[in-house]
Design a protein around this nucleic acid. Structure first.
Lengths: 336, 336
DNA sequence: AATGGGCTTGCAAACGATTTCTTTTTGCGC
DNA sequence: GCGCAAAAAGAAATCGTTTGCAAGCCCATT
């Protein structure tokens, strides 16, 4: 493990002072051309790379922005991360992720990932959804530039990038109704998940508009994971309720639901229509391809990064507004 | 943006020297009980958090280990990342990811993510697959503790965590043969991707064992992505070759392939059997659920992290060996 | 009473950069 | 050839910690 070469080493080698080396390396003017060349050559030759830690200590900027995410393995979040990396590219900033680890036993303090990042003196924080309280996030915003994605926090509206979940849900429910469906089941996300709540609200809104009575027998609680779609359908089936269409809380839930439906010999979409929410990239490849609401994850991630950069350069974050879009594929059909 | 409280602040507040504060905070012995209590109380009261940057500079350890990954959004890699986070949990170490950004135009130097991490003085490096050259990785290993996952590097065998791709591929091909299939198509990964090469080798090996002649008309090049499975099948179909089974280079390729097959009215597995490789979590939820080879991504990620911790504490990394496992679901059936 | 050995504690030197302040050198006009 | 401003280069302070070293104190031993 060879020690990295320092600015001091370069100074010794070239016979100038560390200050001069630093000036050359930072492109500062006021250095004679010959010494500049000398230093540059030595740096090149010895593969000098500035120590970001030392640099960070004196400048107070780590050139890294922290990202708090609940679950990297969820396609939707993974795509947002990709977007963030894209948005940061070429900016000199880099992202560092910290996730809320689901060590189930341990009554884990869910501020831990924030502290990990804060301790490392990240220059800004991007928070993806998550279950930290609004108040906590507001307090955080006093200490450090913050952008929140896929979530809305009261009092921090100008820092939040999110879509309108009730609008998306009502749109897709309306689409189902337009196809002639009247008995539409819904598998939600967790009871107290804000997105889940909004989507349920959108579902009810569309029903109401169409004069269809809300039947709570048709809705079951899920968790936004595949297996909750599977269980949801089983539950619906054992309840014995009839339904011709199913609005799954998100795409993953829809996958599980489709599997359960198929294993009970329902054909999709002939016997029952299934729709999701998110438009994860895989949804174009399911059998049948899933009709869903697109939430532009990559673009949102990129926007979050760009807003952060603006914030860091002292400007207004100018968070853009994202629209959801109905993506019609093959999993929903006319009711007959 | 209030300035964080420093050790110096605590020293001033409590009336002791910074050294003493430091000693208390680090649990060093040789500090009088009363001062210890005093300092602790003040630290608590003012929410003191040590500056990891400063600490890193003097100690030479950043307590973060860098992870280089090509694409976070690939389910397989995402799961490995989850495993890494799990393995690092409670160790005090934290991971920082850097991915090779696919800015397509730019002739991007693919050592960039390594430098980003190295500059920030990570204490170790975990490399997930990737296209950096073996030689580059060997050189790197001289400078910094390194663990390589999902890849084999000559000369660094004791640092590599990977599965035997040829064994997995031959196992699943043998399974197909055992079901009576003789004309088995294969959609590979990129031409020069080592895993793709090994899987192709395993496929040919099983064929040879069974006395089935290798027919290059039956294999097309893919890219390990969904859409390459789709295109692969189209290609096979326009070639007009007959096949009763298809071994997709990985699960994602299989998804695309199944979609293409279905849209040409082939029933899976009745008309053609499809199998994949990886056993990504979604594969249990496709229609039909995918028969595949399991590569234990999360466990491998965790193992990588654990080996890294061992390495950092001066021990032998003891990289474990992982076995692939044939997961039989519903996408392959007996040939008739 | 003087010596010595534990304990505590503080001072000061790192760590590797950046940056302010000084000093030295250079160039130019007269 | 002198003086003076401007340019170039070096010295030193700084960022927030950790840590080796020395100093101080108290008490016991002889």
């Amino acid at each position: 493990m060879t020690k990295p070469v320092t600015i001091e080493d370069l100074a010794r080698i070239t016979g100038v002072s560390p200050s001069t080396v630093s000036r050359v390396l930072n492109g500062n003017k006021g250095v004679a051309a010959d010494k500049r060349a000398l230093v540059l050559e030595a740096a090149e030759k010895h593969h000098y790379r500035p120590n970001a830690v030392a640099r960070g200590l004196v400048s107070g900027r780590s050139m890294t922005i922290g990202v708090v995410v609940q679950d990297i393995a969820t396609p939707f979040f993974a795509n947002m991360l990709v977007g963030i990396e894209q948005g940061l590219d070429q900016s000199g900033y880099r992202s560092m992720f910290a996730s809320t680890l689901w060590r189930d036993n341990d009554p884990n303090d869910d501020h831990e990932p924030f502290h990990v990042l804060l301790d490392r003196r990240v220059d800004g924080l991007i928070v993806l959804a998550g279950q930290a309280s609004d108040q906590f996030l507001r307090d955080l915003a006093e200490q450090i530039p913050i952008i929140i994605a896929a979530r809305k926090v009261e009092g921090l509206e100008d820092r939040c990038i999110s879509i309108d979940n009730v609008e998306g849900a009502s749109t897709i429910t309306r689409y189902l109704i337009g196809l002639g469906h009247k008995r539409i089941a819904h598998i939600t996300g967790h009871r107290n998940h804000p997105d889940a709540l909004d989507r349920l609200r959108g579902y009810r809104l569309a029903l109401e508009e169409a004069g269809i009575e809300y039947d709570e027998e048709l809705v079951v609680e899920g968790s936004f994971h595949e297996e909750s779609g599977l269980k949801g359908v089983e539950q619906l089936l054992t309840r014995g309720v009839r339904f011709s269409a199913l609005f799954a809380g998100n795409d993953q839930t829809a996958y599980g639901a489709m599997l359960a439906l198929a294993s009970h010999n329902f054909r999709i979409p002939n016997d029952v229509s299934v729709v999701g929410f998110d438009d994860v990239s895989l949804s174009a490849y399911t059998l049948p391809p899933l009709t869903t609401i697109r939430q532009p994850a990559v673009a949102m991630g990129r926007a979050a990064a760009e807003s952060m950069l603006r914030l860091l350069s002292g400007n207004d974050p100018e968070v853009p507004h994202f629209q959801t879009e109905l993506i019609i594929r093959k999993s929903a059909a006319i009711y007959h």
